[in-house]
Simulated assay, not measured.
Amino acid sequence: MQRTLLERVEPLARDVVSLVLRGAEGPLAPWEPGAHVDLRLPNWLTRQYSLCGDPADRDTYRVAVRHERLSRGGSEYVHRFLRAGRPLEVSLPRNNFPLLPAPEYLFLAGGIGITPLLPMLRAAVGAGTPCSLVYAGGSAASMPFLEEVRSLAGDRVDILATGERGRPDLARHAAALGPDTLVYCCGPAPMLRAAEAVFPAGRLHVERFRPEARGFAPDAPFEVECARSGGTLRVPADESLLDVLRHAGHAVPSSCREGVCGSCEITVLDGEPEHRDELGAPAGRMYPCVSRALSPRLVVDL
Rank of each mutant, 00 (worst) to 15 (best):
M1P: 09
Q2T: 11
L5M: 03
L6G: 04
L6T: 14
L12H: 01
A13G: 02
P27S: 09
W31F: 03
E32Y: 00
H36Q: 07
L41V: 02
T46N: 00
L51D: 00
D54I: 12
R58H: 14
D59N: 06
V63H: 10
A64C: 02
V65Q: 04
R66P: 00
L70N: 15
R72G: 14
Y77D: 08
R80H: 14
A84D: 01
L88K: 02
E89L: 12
R94F: 07
N95L: 11
N95T: 15
N96M: 14
N96V: 15
N96L: 15
L100P: 00
L106M: 04
F107A: 07
L108Q: 01
A109P: 01
T115V: 08
M120G: 14
L121K: 09
A123P: 03
A136M: 00
S142P: 01
L146G: 04
E148K: 09
E148I: 11
S151W: 10
L152N: 09
D158L: 05
A161F: 05
G163K: 04
R165N: 08
A176I: 12
G178I: 02
P179R: 05
L182V: 06
L182T: 09
C185D: 01
F199T: 07
E207K: 07
F209C: 13
F216R: 02
P221A: 10
V224N: 05
E225T: 15
C226E: 06
C226F: 05
S229Y: 11
G230N: 05
G231R: 12
T232N: 01
L233F: 15
L233E: 04
A251N: 09
P253C: 06
S255M: 02
C256F: 00
R257M: 03
G259F: 15
C261D: 10
E265Y: 10
E265S: 08
L269D: 04
G271C: 10
G271M: 12
L279E: 13
L279H: 13
L279F: 07
P288Q: 06
R292K: 11
R297D: 03
R297V: 11
